[in-house]
């Protein structure tokens, strides 16, 4: 840690923060010398009865999830792994959440505390290790999804959840519009939903909970059980499903869940009950972004493709002003992951 601090303090060049390197594909641009944080790893504390785990940010997700699994617990936001080396810090910096997100919460929802090194190498500790804590501004959650532009994440405390007793994935043949309607209607009923997706005429629904609850919900909803449900969601979560292969640019569309089917060129996969849609397309950003903005959503060029169109949805000028001020506050010299989120950021 001291070495990291020293490196930040003394550098005159931008630094590119990296642990496992599995998310090098993500973000606007990769500038600067690599600041390798992968050695800063290890679980600091974990007590199942507290529902809280604290780990250094270079810790691989796999290590954390294996330990939680041994105690019948899990990360409630079901983070994707884009390789075996995916780290906690990278996941939180990107703010990535998986299939369970609309039903249990996002990465930032589970963050309780964060320790960072700011752009001057100063070690700052925000939040804590308790589930309820409203002392001070919520800088821990501000860091989540900030792509390392406000500080090097060094340690995080997360709330964890008990694993459900049983899970069952159901399949229903239906068209896109009907699937969107059902996903939203069912989310408004007391059903043990934990994931939903639609692709090529099939709606996939995962139920999680007590054995009887899952059985009863299946009886209510109908649908065909999927024989390899666990694997299905893992492939979807980690972008290993067939949909994600190929050379076309991959867009992530985030929008209100009820938005009717989007008429855009290319093929689509719907996740998060309709609130997240993946698009493989050659369509131009200038076609995609206005459609999303009109629905109250935003579009990210997630992987592959020409990044000069802007990876992230542009912000209104007034909001950008506050982003720039926060960046200047935490990284006055503009050296941390410069250009990764927005140009010159």
């Amino acid at each position: 840690m001291q070495a990291l601090q020293e490196r930040i303090r003394t550098t005159h060049l931008p630094l590119r923060i990296r642990a496992g390197g599995t998310k090098d594909f993500y973000g606007q641009s990769l500038a600067g010398d690599i600041l390798d944080v992968s050695a800063h790893r290890g679980i600091v504390s974990y007590e199942p009865g507290e529902l809280v785990i604290t780990a250094k940010c270079g810790t691989p997700l796999a290590e954390i999830e294996t330990l939680l699994d041994e105690h019948g617990q899990m990360l409630g936001f079901e983070p994707p792994r884009f390789g075996a080396a995916s780290s906690l810090g990278g996941t939180l910096a990107c703010g990535f959440s998986g299939p369970r997100r609309p039903y249990s919460g996002s990465a930032r929802d589970f963050v309780l505390g964060m320790e960072i090194l700011d752009g001057t190498g100063q070690h700052l500790k925000f939040g804590g290790r308790v589930i309820k804590n409203v002392a001070g501004y919520d800088a821990s959650r501000l860091m989540t999804g900030a792509l390392g532009t406000l500080g090097v994440l060094v340690q995080a405390s997360l709330k964890v959840l008990p694993k459900p007793q049983s899970e069952l994935t159901l399949q229903f043949e239906m068209d896109e519009a009907t699937a969107l309607k059902h996903m939203n209607e069912w989310a408004g009923r007391p059903l043990p939903l934990s994931a939903s997706a639609w692709q090529s005429g099939v709606l996939f629904l995962r139920l999680s909970g007590a054995n009887n609850a899952v059985r009863e919900a299946h009886a209510k909803l109908g649908g065909e059980p999927h024989l390899h449900g666990t694997e299905f969601w893992r492939l979807l979560r980690d972008h290993e499903a067939a949909f994600f292969s190929g050379d076309l640019p991959l867009w992530r569309l985030s929008l209100p869940a009820c938005t009717p089917p989007l008429d855009l060129d290319g093929k689509q996969l719907i996740t998060w009950g309709g609130a997240e849609r993946w698009l493989k397309t050659n369509a131009a950003a200038t076609e995609i972004r206005p459609r999303l903005a009109a629905s109250g959503g935003h579009a990210t060029l997630f992987a592959v493709g020409e990044k000069s169109v802007g990876v992230f949805h542009p912000l209104p000028a007034a909001l950008m002003k506050y982003h720039a001020r926060l960046k200047k506050l935490f990284d006055p010299r503009g050296i941390l992951n410069r250009g990764r989120l927005y140009p010159d950021f």
Binding site: S106, D138, T144, G145, L150, S254, F312
Partner: peptide
């Protein structure tokens, strides 16, 4: 939507 571009100012 379930998220917005940029920093999480909602949490802040």
């Amino acid at each position: 939507a379930l998220d917005a571009p940029g920093y999480d100012l909602l949490a802040l």
